[in-house]
Nucleic acid binder design. Structure first.
Length: 213
DNA sequence: ATTTTCAAT
């Protein structure tokens, strides 16, 4: 279960470098995905697996995660075949990604999830990937994911703190926020809200138009 | 004001 990942825990410097939520995140030509898998059988919900992944050789990290799922590695019995025990088996996956998914990954994730109603996915993101233009396909992809039942959230201080405790070789060192963490998170959360509630933004545009602004 | 982005050299 462990060998397929780089290592179980992420180095402190790596975590900070890749998850820093500054607006100009120069040179981050890698994306990290920290995940927790929980498994529910009947009334019992238990943490089942956790770890982190990094994109590899032209494959976005989300698709790598999907590959593991399809291989039955992370959520065994997800499709109900296999043992009789797997009937009524539910998984919930929470992941924390340094970038939000691109449009293609969003599309493929949504497609995958439509075939696995017993899998719940929650996505936390540190930065928004190619979401500056209002009509960007990445934005549309995020809305598609939302329609597919995925909860998408911008990471805040508590989320970074949790990740530090859970996925990083922190050696009991307490997570120390970088400059602007909170401010950037608030700003990105506002932006994501605009992306996921396009109706409201349009209403504003209409209002401005009516006022001749 | 402008800067970047799951690289490509």
């Amino acid at each position: 279960m462990i060998n397929k990942f780089d290592s179980v825990l992420l180095a402190q410097k790596k975590f900070i470098y890749h998850y820093k939520n500054m607006r100009w995140a120069k040179g981050r030509h890698e994306t990290y995905l920290c995940f927790v898998v929980k498994r529910r059988v009947g009334p019992n919900s238990l943490s089942f697996d956790f770890g982190h992944l990094r994109n590899r050789s032209g494959c976005h990290v989300e698709l790598l995660f999907l590959r593991y799922l399809e291989a039955g590695a992370l959520c065994p019995g997800l499709w109900g075949y296999g043992t009789p025990d797997s009937v009524g088996l539910c998984y919930s996956v929470t992941w924390f990604c340094s970038w939000s998914p691109c449009s293609d990954c969003s599309y493929r994730l949504a497609q995958f999830l439509s075939q696995t109603p017993n899998l719940r996915l929650r996505i936390y993101v540190s930065r928004l990937y190619f979401c500056d233009l209002e009509d960007s396909s990445a934005r549309e992809g995020l809305r598609m994911l939302q329609r597919a039942g995925v909860q998408i959230t911008v990471m805040n201080y508590e989320d970074y703190f949790y990740c530090w405790q859970t996925f990083v070789a922190c050696r009991q060192r307490v997570f120390k926020a970088w400059d602007g963490l909170h401010q950037n998170s608030v700003q990105l959360a506002r932006k994501l809200k605009d992306i996921l509630q396009p109706g409201e933004a349009e209403d504003w545009r209409d209002a401005f138009e009516l006022l001749g602004l």
